Computed example of a mutant assay.
Amino acid sequence: MENKINITLSTTRKEKPNPETLEFGRVFTDHMFVMDYSVTKGWYDPRIVPYEPISLSPSTMVFHYGQTVFEGLKAYRTKEDEIFLFRPDRNFQRMNQSNDRLCIPHIDEQFALEALKQLVAIEKDWVPNLEGTSLYVRPFIIPTEYYLGVAPSKFYRFMIILSPVGSYYKEGIKPVKIYVEDNYVRAVKGGTGTAKTGANYAASLKAQEKAEKNGYSQVLWLDGVEKKYIEEVGSMNIFFKINGEIVTPALNGSILEGVTRNSIIQLLKHWGLTVHEKRISMEDVYNAYKNGQLEEAFGTGTAAVISPIGEFYYNDVQMVLNNGETGEISKKLYDTLTGIQTGTHEDLFNWVVKVTE
């Protein structure tokens, strides 16, 4: 693979959006990173070019068979005007895990990180500075072979695009209401649940639509076999505080290994809290709720960071937590993690990667 990244800067620059009115994933920066793959060349022609449409034949495999992977991470601006990335090495490591599952050739993780740092440095003026805002980073790989056959592609394109974003939820850090889904499933062991691939998210849309029609923000996914054990909430991992201890579903072959999940577990253990990674049923959670032992619940993910849960709808019962208010652990985790990401808290775990001085 070529190590030199060719850079072509845009001759016209877009107007920066108002950081106070940013939505999630609607506006994109001036440039993007692109690299191609063929079976004869491997990965080649890495380049940073103006953000623009891409031209593909209608027969390109990406439109037909779903052999895609993607990642999501963020760049943050500190009060000292430095630009930080949060654990980007973990994202590229997970991308290669997804590549394995989807039969896509590995990328060089260190080279991908260097490409990302160069891209973000070029686009540093796009990183917003208001509290709660950031520059969302979307790396993704698509098959580009022209072929209507079910087989791994022989050609791919790896791209990174950037989008300045506000808070993922309009409610902000306020607790959200969750609908427990007992019909549709997100993934099963042996499927693609551990990969970050588009098909998983397409499969979630019907249940999400159902939840929203009933006045709920997200879906709580149960396992795909018994429809009994808790897996994820929306596109996030989930945690519960039950009788003073933290419980989160163990990685089981159908749950995505979240970078934020991993960070949260390390923080909680650092604070001396007991964390159990184990199989937990919705009935277990319901019984803890009835016994007054369900103290908090929250989702974790790159986009929302921490999303406190104020209510579950389960078996026609509205389970209201903490009087619908944000719990103490949820708030402390949110403040600490976002503080590390933006440079206001000490980075004891060496999670932050500096892009600019």
Results as ranks from 00 to 15, higher is better:
A304N: 05
Y179C: 05
E181C: 08
L267P: 05
Y289D: 07
S204C: 11
V165T: 14
E295I: 14
H276I: 01
E209I: 12
F298H: 00
V185I: 15
G190V: 10
G299V: 11
I238N: 11
A199N: 13
I306L: 10
T260S: 03
L267A: 01
K290R: 14
E295V: 13
V247P: 04
V275D: 12
H270S: 15
V225Y: 11
S263I: 06
V176Y: 02
A195G: 06
T260F: 01
K210Y: 06
L251M: 13
D284N: 15
D284K: 03
I265M: 12
V188E: 09
K241F: 00
K174F: 04
F240N: 05
N200Y: 01
T248A: 09
K177R: 15
L294D: 08
P308R: 02
K177H: 11
Y286L: 00
G301C: 03
P249L: 01
K189P: 14
E231L: 04
G253W: 04
S263L: 03
S217F: 03
N214T: 00
V285D: 06
T302M: 02
S235A: 15
L267M: 14
F239A: 12
L273D: 04
G258F: 04
Y169C: 00
A303T: 12
E277I: 05
I242F: 01
F298K: 00
E257S: 15
A187P: 07
S235E: 12
N214Y: 12
V285H: 04
V233T: 13
K210T: 13
A187E: 09
E232H: 07
N243Q: 10
S204L: 01
V180M: 02
I264D: 02
A211C: 07
G224A: 07
E277C: 07
E226M: 09
V180R: 05
G190S: 10
G272K: 10
K278R: 15
E311M: 14
F239L: 11
S217K: 15
L256E: 08
F312P: 08
Y169G: 03
L256N: 11
T197P: 03
E232P: 10
G191M: 08
G190E: 11
W271Q: 05
T300A: 15
L251N: 08
A288T: 12
T260V: 15
V259R: 03
V233N: 09
A203Q: 09
R186G: 05
G191K: 10
A187R: 06
H270C: 03
P249G: 06
E311D: 00
Y216G: 10
K196E: 00
E245G: 04
I264K: 02
I178R: 06
I309H: 03
G258N: 04
